[in-house]
Amino acid sequence: MLVSWRYKYRNSPMDHIDPRARWIFSFAFLIAATSTWNWIFLLTYFIIALIWYRLGNTTWKETRSGWRLVLFMLFMMIVINTIITGGGAGGVVPPGGQLVWPNGFKLFGETVHFGLTIERIWFAFCQVLRILGISMNFILIPYTMDARSYGATFSSLGMPDKLAYTTELAIRFIPSLARNFSVTMDAQRARGFELDDIKGGIFNKIARMAPLIIPVTMNAILSSEDIADAMDLRGFGQGKRTWLYELRYHRWDYIVLGFSALLAIGGLVASYVFHMGDFIVPQFFYNLFA
């Protein structure tokens, strides 16, 4: 099994933005986008996210697996929320509203009364804007963030050293553990073990994972004594540490930071001070159904 990082340096604008500024921007975006259901705001955010996403220079081919998952989840949720349960969405969409088919419609000669309202369709549209906007921010990360940057970035953002270093060490051991898993898989197959040939119910199927999971896990635990020794022997955890990975704010990073603050604070103020964040359906949308 080969597990590899999707990051590669592509000299994109995103490659030149400090990782700290990037994390801050994405969280500011998350705050802003989740504070409103007003379609004008959501559409603006969506466009901002689109521009941000384009700065990464990723291709559809490399990101499509991530997008497939997001689109599937989005589809499931909208179908269930809009059509099946008739989404009240935590009181965002007021009850009642204007039915799309006030007199029902004919299906196989029967008249069907279906309670889909114009408001709910518009709300689904708003959901799509919001979720895609957030997704663009976060799907970008694995493809454009250097795996070496995580420890230094989190530490610099205020996470304790030991915790920040944990992510770095975890990244180091991923390929080793992936290889160990393959070896164990081969070793058990050599003893006649076949995963696709699993008989019995769901419980049996899960229990049959034991010959794969147990050796890999116990081996990992046994090796941690040596790893801890190696760390102690090189002075780990005995003082404030520095990081080899270089983080430096440039002029444009301050622009990103300023914009992030504006986005988050502006979004919150607009919604919670001026109450501009409420869900509204524009007149032109009603007109479409007239």
Binding site: T167, L169, A170, I174, L177, V216, S223, I227
Partner: peptide, 15 residues
């Protein structure tokens, strides 16, 4: 604990 946490996280991801 740093080592167990890191190994655990890597293991969870891989599995």
């Amino acid at each position: 604990q740093v080592v167990y946490a890191a190994i655990g996280a890597a293991l969870y991801a891989v599995l």
